[in-house]
């Protein structure tokens, strides 16, 4: 048995919890190794020195017994004493109580930050920059009367899909807003431009797209004024106009 093993088991040996064969091996080692015997003697001395019982003094016994009997009887004094004791215990353990309240503050704080984070939309960026086709209101200000509210945009969702496929071809990251009118032939023309794009080619490209697109529901549209707004259109580098 090595010294390390001996030191690991020396406390079990001291407490008589070691199996007999292991104890024999350990005793052999103690016979050979001075350091380990020294350690064992020290620990054994500590163990022997600790084994001293205290005795409750007789006077204290009587006092305690009387006190316990007095305090154990229930009545107003006991009730008041208990209230005081509860308060005293609370005050004594205040650090623990404060710890608990700190711990309970954690979910509250987390919830607070979650609520802040929930203010931001969780949709992907691409969806967030999706161009708005139909702009019935312009909520730039609460007080300013929206410019476009009277204009009814009467078109179907099929038209929106077509416009979208035309707009997707627009090559610049840019924006424009315009009012287009659908002609009896089923195409569309730019009536007037509300917001010019930075790139002039973009306007021309949109114009081309509108002229060449065949709108399926042209016959159904009685008031063929359509507002189109393309915002932050992504770069489409393969486009021939680039």
């Amino acid at each position: 048995m090595t010294c390390k093993e001996t030191r690991n088991r020396i406390h079990d040996y001291l407490d008589g919890e070691l199996a007999a064969n292991q104890a024999t091996v350990l005793e052999e080692h103690l016979g050979e190794c001075n350091d380990c015997r020294e350690a064992w003697e020290g620990l054994n001395w500590i163990k022997q020195s600790l084994a001293v019982r205290e005795h409750l003094p007789v006077a204290a016994q009587e006092h305690i017994w009387t006190q316990v009997k007095v305090k154990a009887g229930y009545g107003w004094p006991t009730f008041l004493y208990e209230q005081w004791d509860t308060f005293r215990t609370f005050w004594r353990d205040l650090d623990r109580q404060i710890l608990y309240s700190k711990l309970s503050a954690v979910p509250v704080t987390v919830g607070f930050f979650v609520m802040i984070l929930m203010q931001f939309p969780l949709v992907p960026f691409q969806d967030w920059t999706y161009p708005a086709f139909e702009m019935r209101r312009m909520p730039s200000s609460v007080f300013a009367e929206p410019l476009m509210t009277e204009v009814e945009a009467r078109h179907t969702y099929a038209d929106i899909d077509e416009i979208w496929s035309a707009a997707w071809k627009i090559p610049y990251e840019d924006s424009l807003s315009l009012v287009a009118q659908i002609t009896p032939a089923g195409h569309a023309e730019i009536d007037h431009v509300l917001e010019y794009p930075k790139n002039q080619n973009l306007l021309a490209a949109v114009d081309d797209s509108l002229r060449s697109t065949q709108f399926q529901s042209a016959q159904d549209i009685r008031n063929p004024l359509v507002i189109y707004s393309f915002q932050k259109i992504d770069v489409y580098s393969d486009h021939p106009d680039l």
Binding site: L56, A60, I64, W65, Q67, V68, K71
Partner: peptide
Amino acid sequence: ALDITQEVFLTLF
């Protein structure tokens, strides 16, 4: 220790 002994037996009660 005396105080605690008293508290312990009071708790027992």
